[in-house]
Design a protein around this nucleic acid. Structure first.
Lengths: 187, 187
DNA sequence: CAGATCTTTTGACAAGGATCAAAATCCGTC
DNA sequence: GACGGATTTTGATCCTTGTCAAAAGATCTG
């Protein structure tokens, strides 16, 4: 919980009141490796904060699993599309390690928006940062070669390669596992 | 101005007060075709609403212009990275037609956040929608073939192909102009 | 430690798309 | 209507990456 509070403060300061009440709103969730946090077809009603562990988002395309997202400590986790629109998720989120998460429901979060307008601001700022991050990833994915993307990942987030199976990393980078293996061999 | 108000109402209702004062905060900008709204290296201090016309965002990569974004009526326009962080933009935004825009500065917008907390909410909701949209585009770009991406564009936004030169559309889809021309010939 | 299973590497081949070059169209302007 | 420039198409070739298949390494479990 302390870790979540510290992380939220990176976005915006928290009032004393909110800080002290925060544990009422979040629920601790501990799950083992391989568990599915979110499954395709179900509506995602919770937003999670990942305290420890790592996980991946994937969906099925023509019978293949596409890993489109990887999450680590201090990431917010949800199927954003489903959480925001309350339509069924098109993706699954699976734990790659045992994880400790803190969950808050959409309703509770909505209540916080009403009660503390610093939360509205905090979330707005969080979206700004997440948006920029996604934009950068998009540009890299579309306009860089496979080798460049892997080198960029190594440079920006070397822990990913150490903690995530090669096949998932390859899919995340939008290349086949074999190609990634060959790129690694060459470097 | 009426169009901007209507568009904002799609995200969240506006108080009477805000609605009536809105023109004080936005400045009308009319620019001719080919003009650069934002240039690489300069800090972007304005957010624009595009009332009529269309434009493109592009940046230089190894001497080539990469068009990574296209904007049309009712889009918000800025270099988000630069506007949010107030660092120099890495991209240019150029008008593909004569345009009517409404500009608001970062400072003025910040003032609105303080004065009307419905604005904070509205912007938060706008980010949610923009985030989902970008996510979808990202997934399509990384995991679909060139032909699929073009068909998807034709289906979702046929006006793009009619108003935007082929070379820009190709770049936007992440393929070469020649390949796009061949795809069109085949369909 | 052996067997089973999962993950990574290697090899051969095919396909999609890029690049370079040239021809064909389209368009605005004098 | 003719010229010049921009835009789009077509052709030939090459390169990167995907796919399929198999081997080699890891890892887990009893």
């Amino acid at each position: 919980m302390e870790q979540l509070i510290q992380h939220l403060k990176h976005f915006h300061q928290l009032s004393e009141a909110l800080q002290h009440n925060l544990e009422r709103y979040f629920t601790k969730v501990v799950l083992p490796k391989n568990e599915l946090l979110i499954t395709e077809g179900s509506v995602c009603r919770q937003l999670y904060f990942l305290e420890t562990g790592c996980l991946r988002g994937f969906y099925n395309l023509d019978g293949k699993e596409i890993t489109h997202w990887l999450g680590f400590e201090n990431d917010f986790v949800t199927s954003f599309h489903s959480f925001i629109t309350q339509q069924p998720a098109v993706e699954n989120i699976q734990l790659m390690e045992g994880c400790v998460l803190w969950a808050i429901s959409k309703e509770t979060l909505g209540g916080l928006f009403e009660e503390y307008n610093e939360v509205e601001r905090l979330v707005r700022i969080a979206y700004e940062k997440y948006y920029i991050r996604l934009e950068e990833r998009f540009v890299n994915s579309q306009f860089r070669t496979a080798t460049e993307r892997y080198e960029h990942l190594l440079q920006r987030a070397p822990h990913v390669v150490e903690r995530v199976p090669l096949g998932y990393v390859a899919s995340y980078l939008g290349i086949s596992q074999e190609t990634l293996s060959r790129i690694r061999g060459r470097l």
